[in-house]
């Protein structure tokens, strides 16, 4: 279908995008890579009055080393993130999960910031941001603010961004030495969205798990931290039985959806199996 009419504004800088967004009012939207927005426009599930195109703002694509953290520009494309040496060295979980997103053509245009702002519970990157305790940087006419990932995903397809806020970047604390990571995604076909996904980072010391971060994709309206799993495994000796027992706790406190890909019960079961797999891969046993 042909999208409904909208005004189009091409912003040359983040400042210009923020003022254009404020001027255009509540029914305006940011156009990033367009890889989620365009299908919604074509199906007329979305009909914004105006689109503010931030696709030419090169400064928003930058990926920078800030010492203890990386700053990933909101407009860094999936393609760029997967290949970026800083991301691969200091946030390999992001590189691994991003490589599973959609297909090459979509990864050429889709952006890291867009995938987070879109807040799709089946999206792979929200759970990763949550597992890594990322902080999202937002800018509006009222100034800038930092939103921890734990507060960013508010509800189904709803982020904490105000309608006049632009996501400019994401600060991701670096994982130091001793960490292993893995993203385990279960889907029916190569390009499809996760039925369930598990983002996992584990720090081992002398045979035991010192620190574990586990977050789940598509196990509720927002990504969730599997705190029962984390609490169970921390301090324990790494073995296939301890990791499996930790995995058993993955569905605790979740409210997975039932849809044509699977029932809530099926997802709860999947989460336990996939979490054990993810822990095993991350802890390298």
């Amino acid at each position: 279908m042909i999208p409904a009419k909208f005004e189009y504004v091409r912003a040359a800088s983040a400042g210009e995008a923020v003022s254009a967004l404020a001027q255009a009012g509540e029914d305006a939207k940011i156009l990033a890579g367009g890889q989620s927005l365009m299908p919604l426009l074509r199906l007329r599930l979305a009909y914004p009055d105006a689109l503010i195109d931030v696709g030419r703002i090169e400064a928003l694509r930058e990926i920078r080393d800030e010492g203890g953290a990386l700053l990933i520009g909101a407009m860094a494309t999936h393609h760029q993130v997967v290949r970026d040496p800083l991301v691969r060295a200091h946030a390999p979980l992001i590189a691994a999960a991003t490589a599973t997103v959609a297909d090459p053509a979509i990864r050429h245009r889709g952006t890291f910031g867009g995938a987070l702002a879109h807040a799709d519970p089946a999206g792979d990157l929200p759970a990763v941001a949550l597992a890594l305790d990322a902080v999202l940087l937002a800018r509006s006419p009222r100034g800038e603010r930092e939103i921890p990932a734990a507060d960013f995903f508010v509800d189904w397809m709803t982020s904490a961004l105000d309608p006049d806020e632009l996501l400019t970047g994401v600060r991701v604390p670096k994982l130091g030495p001793g960490w292993g990571v893995h993203y385990e995604k279960f889907h029916r076909t190569a390009q499809a969205w996760a039925i369930v996904g598990v983002a996992c980072a584990v720090r081992r010391e002398r045979g035991a798990v010192e620190d574990a971060r586990v977050a789940l994709t598509n196990m509720g309206p927002v990504p969730v931290r599997a705190t029962a799993v984390e609490r169970f495994i921390e301090g324990r000796t790494v073995s296939s039985s301890s990791l499996r027992a930790a995995g058993e706790r993955a569905a605790e406190g979740t409210s997975p959806p039932t849809d044509l890909h699977g029932s809530a019960e099926y997802r709860a079961h999947l989460a336990t199996v996939l979490t054990a797999r993810a822990l095993t891969a991350a802890a390298a046993v």
Partner: peptide, 21 residues
């Protein structure tokens, strides 16, 4: 993917790109 073209040398689905982009 039927509509795939190269945009500045990289594959893109031309149904997910506006002409203005």
């Amino acid at each position: 993917g039927a509509c795939t073209v190269l945009l500045d040398g990289l594959s893109a689905k031309s149904c997910a790109v506006l002409a203005v982009q």
